[in-house]
Design a protein around this nucleic acid. Sequence first.
DNA 1: ACTGTTGTGTTCGGTATCGCACACAATTGC
DNA 2: GCAATTGTGTGCGATACCGAACACAACAGT
Lengths: 251, 251
Amino acid sequence: MPGAKKVVVPNRLLGALPRKEYQKLLPILEPVNLTFGEILYESQTQIRHVYFPNDCFVSMLTTVDTGRAAEVGLIGSEGMIGVPMALGVAVSPFRAVVQGGGTAMRLKTGDFRRSFSNSAALKREVFLFTHLLMIQIAQTAACNRFHVVGQRMARWMLMTRDRVNSNEFRITQEFLALMLGVRRVGVSAAMSDLRERNLIIYSRGTITILDHEGLVALACGCYKTVKDIYTEAQAKNGNTRTPGSHPPNPM
Amino acid sequence: MPGAKKVVVPNRLLGALPRKEYQKLLPILEPVNLTFGEILYESQTQIRHVYFPNDCFVSMLTTVDTGRAAEVGLIGSEGMIGVPMALGVAVSPFRAVVQGGGTAMRLKTGDFRRSFSNSAALKREVFLFTHLLMIQIAQTAACNRFHVVGQRMARWMLMTRDRVNSNEFRITQEFLALMLGVRRVGVSAAMSDLRERNLIIYSRGTITILDHEGLVALACGCYKTVKDIYTEAQAKNGNTRTPGSHPPNPM
DNA sequence: ACTGTTGTGTTCGGTATCGCACACAATTGC
DNA sequence: GCAATTGTGTGCGATACCGAACACAACAGT
């Protein structure tokens, strides 16, 4: 294939597709830059694009009557934003907010619908991810019930670390409090606790994880539970069909 | 159609199928009796049957590290137990416990797989329900975060009422506490509060809702939010294709 | 009638989180 | 260099829920 462009496919859901299937998507995939704070979907509104994050990640939020919201899911390069489209629904039940800026590929809903119904491989990948997302949401429900702020915050940091693939990322205490559905003071206290234990350092919106193991030990088991399920599912799946088609998988 | 048996189809998911599609399922659908406390799936185990409840309902539970569990979803005749099968996964991530005894129809996983891939209508119904279940789970996550025991308990009673289609049902405080992930004393206090307000009466495992409106007013908005989404989705869906094929829809 | 089991009510001290408010430090914009 | 904005730390009283324990009432089995 002379002159074929070398294409990087950091999104691991797309990366798990057979080469041919991916080639068919390429012409209609639109690379976009997503910036922190950008709202991809407002709750109860029409989905216009589905997004496949490369190096960004997105929070899914559910709102309650009082107007307060809490994060129910965190999606990075392992998945897709717009899962309802796979289930035949074009309205997002969640708000989708860009948590970490970066690049993504997106498809118009119409294009996605067509490609989806024509590609068994894409269906398989998207359905598998839908299943995993459902598990993550359910675990969050139980986690919210049983675990204290410190544990949940540690879990959040670890999940984020996995998705940005780096021990350093940006998030303010204020914003993190919104995600966890607690007061900022709660986050503030929990964070300085982690700092005192030498697990992290932070300053004005930048967090650096110093001791990954230690953080895992302090976080609730929900982190490991979900991560293990993701890892196992993706090992069974991607690896056999597309050896070496994407970078080593940290999740 | 002389001699055609009059078939009652209380499960509304099956009831929303075109007559022809339903007829094809009939020979392989096995009617079963589910009794209170019966465990349909243990978490992380193989799914052997998918269940379509008629007049029973089932709790989906997620466990955390400490061994404690909380309900993340409640499924009655509007849905199906075994949603992961629709996503290509034959392992249940949740424990499924029969909450209210009654009858259901079930399919062996193999039969379901075949019927599912051959019936666009069945796919449509099951995917729509999957979407709704995901919303319910996410709302539960937020609800667990923001609302107090009393509100969540009222929500649970209302959801149960909708599924048993009756103002009276059986549940002990002990069991309800397990579902909500709180101590029994919490449930006890919240219940006697409801009794004092003349919203319910109860005695040794039997609860009767006296004032539905009043209970809705006291429950958190999560109840109405989810119910409205279910109602709307099913109105758009079932009604147009199968007028009068099932009893008036209370949800 | 008696006994064991099950379902419900109540109390106690301890803790996590709430809301609200104020102080201060680091950064940005002019 | 100064002012405004943003991010973080701290204190306070109130409340919801925790774990544990005990008391009692309704029911079931013998």
